[in-house]
Every structure is written in C-alpha cells, then in structure tokens.
C-alpha cells in the first residue's frame, strides 16, 4: 500500500501523540482528530489512509496510554517506522494491529512528504522518489500473525473459536 511520510525526531512521547486532555473520550475518530496536535497541527487535518509516521529514537516513550496507537490507526496510518521504540508503545501498536518497524537505516533515507510503498509480508519499503527498495528486518512469526489477525482482540477471538471447534466434534 502506498502512502506519504510524516517525519519527526527522537523521543516522540505519547503525551504529544495524544494529549492527556483527550483521554476520557474513547471514540477512535475523535482521538484521530487530535493526533500529534501538540507537535504538528498539520498532521490530523491532512493525514491520509496509508500514510506512514516516521520517528527517530525511542518513539512512543512515556505514558502507557494505548490511545496513542489508536489515534494513529484511526487516522489511517499504515505503519510507524522508527530508529527504536519505547516498549509499551511497541506492544500497544502490535496489539492494536498497527505495524511497527524498527529500521534505523530506512529512517535516514526517508524525508517528510516522500511517497513510499510498504510491503509488510516481504519486509520492504519502496521509495518512489528514488525508485529504491529498502529491506527491513521482518517481525517474528507470532507477531506477524497478530498483525494479520488485526491485533490481539481478534487474535484471541480466533483462538477461542478454534479451541471450541476442537472440543465440539
């Protein structure tokens, strides 16, 4: 899927991804309308389905609020690429079906506004500006399965259904 790059620096924390003042409303579209607003007022009104958020080191540090991942998926973000991730955001993103790609070299090559094509299954990002295709280290199989299922909740539902299927001959 093709999308545009939104690029940020190091230590993008979850307070700026989704400010605390919006946390009590769980509506995903509402959260998306405030995504990134404390560091980038242009993001929420202009982000399109399939766009990619790119960060530096320690993306998603700070509060465990998973609304930071929810607001990005609801805004249409296809994946987050960063030099490194803070652990809670990393887990939240996967559990909500948002691919997270740790690839420092790729981050260096991407510029704000670049058009890219991401293939999670192949583990490649094609950079339209140069025509170059960059490979990244793919995620472990059980995480890829979680992402294919659309996150932890659908994954658990599937598992429970399978269990029931076995017990009912």
């Amino acid at each position: 899927m093709k999308g545009k790059v939104w690029k940020y620096g190091d230590d993008v924390n979850t307070d700026v991804i989704l400010p605390g003042r919006y946390l009590s409303n769980y509506d995903a579209k509402f959260l998306a309308s405030h995504a990134m607003e404390d560091i980038d007022k242009e993001f929420a009104p202009n982000v399109k389905q399939g766009d990619i958020v790119v960060g530096g080191r320690n993306f998603g540090c700070g509060s465990s609020r998973e609304q930071a991942a929810t607001c990005l998926t609801a805004a249409g973000v296809q994946a987050v690429v960063a030099k490194s991730f803070a652990r809670i955001f990393y887990r939240n993103a996967i559990n909500l079906g948002l691919p997270v790609i740790q690839a420092p070299e790729l981050v260096e090559k991407l510029q704000k506004g670049d058009e890219v094509e991401l293939d999670m299954e192949k583990g490649t990002v094609k950079l339209m500006r140069t025509g170059e295709s960059v490979a990244f280290k793919s995620l472990p199989p059980f995480i890829m399965e979680l992402l294919r299922d659309g996150g932890l909740i659908p994954h658990l539902k599937k598992q429970m259904a399978e269990k029931k299927g076995i017990s009912q001959p």
């Binding site: 609020r65 998973e66 991942a69 887990r91 939240n92 559990n95 909740i153 658990l156």
Partner: peptide
C-alpha cells in the same frame, strides 16, 4: 511493568 488496555483485556481473559 506497564501494559496497554487491550493487552490487559487479554490478561483478564487468560
């Protein structure tokens, strides 16, 4: 350690 709400739902279930 800290986890997200979705993950906690999984913990409550399993």
């Amino acid at each position: 350690t800290g986890i997200g709400a979705t993950e906690m739902a999984g913990v409550w279930a399993t």
